[in-house]
Design a protein around this nucleic acid. Structure first.
Lengths: 204, 204
DNA sequence: ATATAGTGAACGATCGTTCGTTCAAGAGGC
DNA sequence: GCCTCTTGAACGAACGATCGTTCACTATAT
């Protein structure tokens, strides 16, 4: 950050690629065995990198998870942008619910976020990172909800923020349910939408 | 289970008490540090029991967690009984939401169930135990919901079972939110009830 | 005397991290 | 062009700690 942005040399690119490869390997390990059941050696060997070298790129195992959480944040951006597009509120909401639910229904996504969030309970830095990620999504949804109220398509008796939080929690709850109970998300989405629309007082 | 119920001798009682003390200690450890960050020695010493003796009572660390999950099941029984009481549906539902939300809002309860459920992802026996526990609650809530529909106080456009699952998921989501974000459940309950009543089409 | 609750040392494995070393690639003087 | 010199990525052995579990043994109650 102190040096001005010099053009990324070939070397820099290679380094970034290595870093990314390690993170990818770590994600695979964490998905398969969980964070605490994964050893640093497992990550290194799956990434095709030596144990010592991994520590040249990341300061600790915890740091690896932090970086993964940062990457997860980037994956939420498309949903946020989608929520902020102009257009009919109900249509945007409907598309968001489908999209986000489908995204989370991939076991890799929901399991990874469970892994991160359960670690976040006791690690403050991960916790604040995790809640920042979520807050960005809540705020975007909240703005849509407010617009829905203004336009008369939503009839909320509670604050849009609170409602938005619950919408997200319900989608995540369904995703978690689908992973643990082995139900396909596709079958859960219609009921979910119906439940949410009723909850938000959406004029059909 | 093979022997008929002989009168529990003083010795048997002492053994059961020891067992329970170990489980209590294990819960405390799991809450404080998580399942995988807790060593068997931590449990034994917190219970005031030797390491070897712990293995006289439980066959493995995993077994300890299984037994804890079984105890958790018992804690759900009062809620199930409450749901099955006769009386006005809305009142019972309201009381259940308050009660269950308050129960989960105690960090010890929600964190413990997170700990169990995240272990349940990869351990099949815990997984089925966990989903049995939850299914019992879902079914009781489902019967109440059906009664509500029959009596015309709920207006569901989806299956009562699906709705019941979502109700539980939302309560748990709020509880998890309150722990991770540090919000008091007391403040979340009114909004939660409002959201749920709208979702279920409850005639106010 | 028999059975078993209770003990803690010991086991082998694995944990996250550190260490000294090697070596290929750029920088700068010639 | 060539030749040092410096840098830091890459490596894997080694560290001390801790892991879950076992086992030979003692104490105690029946």
């Amino acid at each position: 950050m102190t040096t001005p942005d010099s053009p990324p040399s070939k070397r820099d690119k290679e380094l970034a690629a290595r870093r990314y490869k390690i993170l990818e390997a770590a994600v695979m390990c964490f998905l398969e065995n969980g964070f605490h059941q994964t050893g640093v050696r497992d990550i290194a060997s799956k990434a095709g990198v030596s144990l010592g070298n991994l520590y040249n790129h990341f300061s600790s195992k915890h740091d690896v998870l932090i970086e993964i959480a940062r990457l997860e944040r980037a994956e939420l951006d498309p949903f946020i942008r989608q929520l902020e597009k102009p257009g009919p509120v109900l249509k945007i909401f409907d598309r968001f619910v489908s999209g986000y639910a489908k995204y989370l229904s991939a076991p890799e996504n929901i399991i990874l976020s469970i892994e991160i969030s359960s670690e976040a309970i006791r690690k403050e830095d991960l916790g604040s990172l995790f809640s920042e990620n979520r807050q960005a999504l809540v705020e975007a949804l909240q703005r849509l909800a407010q617009r829905g109220v203004d336009e008369g398509v939503f009839h909320l008796k509670i604050e849009p923020e609170e409602a938005s939080q619950m919408v997200l929690e319900l989608i995540e709850g369904r995703a978690y349910h689908s992973v643990l109970m082995g139900a396909t998300m596709r079958r859960l989405i219609p009921g979910l939408k119906n439940f949410l629309c009723s909850a938000l007082g959406a004029s059909t």
